[in-house]
Design a protein around this nucleic acid. Structure first.
Lengths: 235, 235
DNA sequence: TAGCAACCGGACGACCTTCTCCGGTTACCG
DNA sequence: CGGTAACCGGAGAAGGTCGTCCGGTTGCTA
C-alpha cells in the first residue's frame, strides 16, 4: 500500500520502462494541453508519447490525473509568481506585475488557461497551491490598498474576474493577435487606481467563485464526482 | 430560380407544413443555442422542434444556415442598440450604455456570445449588420472622444476586446454568479476615462480582428470554406 | 375529390473519442 | 542466466454526433 502510494505520487517504484513511459506521457500531455486545451483527445497524447492508448489509461485512469501530473511543475511556477510579487518593494508594482505575469502565463498556454477556469477535482496538489496563491493574493491586495495605490473596493476575487476576462481574449486572439491580451490587462489595471469613485457592482462571493469553477469541470471532461455515473463517454 | 431564392430567404414559398416546421426549427434552435452555445448537437434542436433529423438537415444543410436563421431577429435587435446609443444626447452615456447593453445581451445568451467571437461565413445578413454596427460604433467612439469623455487612444477594436473579455467571464460565471459580468464591465468602463495617461499596448488591427474571428469559426463547427473537405464529422 | 409532388422522419452508415482486454514482450531479481 | 511478474500496445466495444436515404404521408391543385 505504501508502494502503491508512491507509485501514484510521481512514479517512484515503477519499473524502469514504465517510468520512462510515464515521463514521456507527461511531457506529451504538457505539449498537447498547451496547444489544444484540457479537452484535447487523449489518443493524441499517447501517440505523441510513442505509446499505446492502453499504457496511457493504465498509468492515468482519469483525465484529471493526467492533467494534474502534466501541470504540477507549471502550477508551482505560477504560485511562485505571487510570492515573487510579494517580495517586490513597491506595493503597486507588486500587484500589477502579478496580474500581468499571471495573465501572460495563461495567454501563452491554453491548458493553463483552462486550469484556471476549472477546479481540479480531488487534487491535493492543486488545492494546496491554490490556497497558497489565495493567501499571497490577499496580502498583495491589502498591501496595495494600504499604500493607497489600489482602489478600496477591490477584492481578491476581482483578480479571478480579470483572469476569466483575459482567458476569453486570449482564447480567440491567441493566433491572430498574440498581444491583444496585454492591452486588455492594461485597461483593467488602469481601472484599479484609487481615484475611481464610481461604485462597482457587487463582486462574486467566494462561494460563487467556487461554484463557477466546479460547474465547468464537467465541460472539460473532468468529472467532478469521482464515483459518479462514469459512462464510458462524456465528450 | 426566383422561387428557390425566396425559399432560402425566410421560408416564403414553402408548403404550409414545411413552413410550420421551419418556424419550429428556428424557434427550437434559438432556445438551444441560447442555452448551450452554437456548438450544441443539432439532433437536440430537431427533437425540441418535434421534427425528424432529416427535416432539419433538408431545411438547413449546414449549421451556419441554421444559426443565421435563428439569430436574424436577435442580431437586428443588437444592431439597434448601437443606433439607439447614437441618439443619446450625452456622448459618454451613449458610449457606456452601448457597451453595457451589448455585454448584457451576450451574458444572457450563450449563442449570441459565440456569434461575436466568430465570423459567420457567407452570411450576407450578418455581414451587413456587422457593417452597420461598425459604422455606428466608430461614430460613438469619435463623438465621445471629441467631447473629452473617452481617452484619446481608445479605438473601436477595443470594444471587440471588451466583448471577448465579457464573454470569457460570462461563460464561466453564468450560472454561479450571473451578475459578475457587470462588475467586469464597470472596471473596463472606468479605464476608459480621458484622465489615463499610461500608454496602452497596441490594439489589435482590423485585419487581426478579422482573422481572429475567422479562425474560431471552425471550432464551433461552422466551416469557413463551404466546399472544403467536408468530412462528415468535425465535433 | 383524386392524383401528384413535396415533404416527413426514422433508420442507418461514417467517423470520432473514450476506455478495456489480452496475448506477446521485457525488465528485474535471485 | 532463467523464471516470473509487471508492462506494452494494438484491437475493439460502447457511446455519441453528423449527415443521408428512402418508404410512407400529406398538402396542394385541378
Amino acid at each position: 500500500m505504501a508502494a502503491t502510494e508512491s507509485v501514484r505520487a510521481g512514479g517512484r517504484g515503477l519499473r524502469a520502462d514504465a517510468l520512462r513511459n510515464r515521463q514521456r506521457l507527461v511531457a506529451a500531455a504538457r505539449q498537447i494541453f498547451e496547444e489544444q486545451g484540457l479537452d484535447a483527445p487523449l489518443d493524441e497524447v499517447a501517440e505523441r508519447a510513442g505509446v499505446g492508448a492502453g499504457t496511457l489509461y493504465r498509468r492515468f485512469p482519469t483525465r484529471a490525473e493526467l492533467v494534474e501530473a502534466a501541470f504540477e511543475d507549471e502550477l508551482r511556477r505560477v504560485t511562485a509568481i505571487a510570492e515573487e510579487a510579494l517580495r517586490c518593494e513597491d506595493p503597486w508594482t507588486g500587484f500589477s506585475t502579478y496580474v500581468e505575469r499571471l495573465c501572460g502565463a495563461m495567454a501563452a498556454d491554453r491548458g493553463l488557461s483552462d486550469l484556471f477556469t476549472v477546479r481540479l477535482p480531488n487534487s491535493q496538489v492543486a488545492s494546496a497551491l491554490c490556497d497558497r496563491q489565495s493567501a499571497a493574493l490577499a496580502k498583495l491586495v491589502r498591501r496595495a490598498q494600504e499604500a493607497g495605490a489600489l482602489r478600496a473596493d477591490f477584492v481578491p476575487e476581482d483578480v479571478f474576474l480579470f483572469l476569466l476576462a483575459n482567458a476569453g481574449v486570449a482564447q480567440v486572439t491567441r493566433c491572430a493577435a498574440p498581444h491583444a491580451w496585454r492591452r486588455l490587462v492594461a485597461f483593467l489595471l488602469a481601472s484599479c487606481g484609487p481615484d475611481h469613485t464610481e461604485p462597482l457592482p457587487a463582486a462574486p462571493t467566494p462561494l460563487q467563485t467556487e461554484r463557477a469553477l466546479l460547474g465547468n469541470a464537467e465541460t472539460k471532461g473532468l468529472g467532478s464526482c469521482p464515483g459518479e455515473g462514469a459512462g464510458p463517454n462524456r465528450a
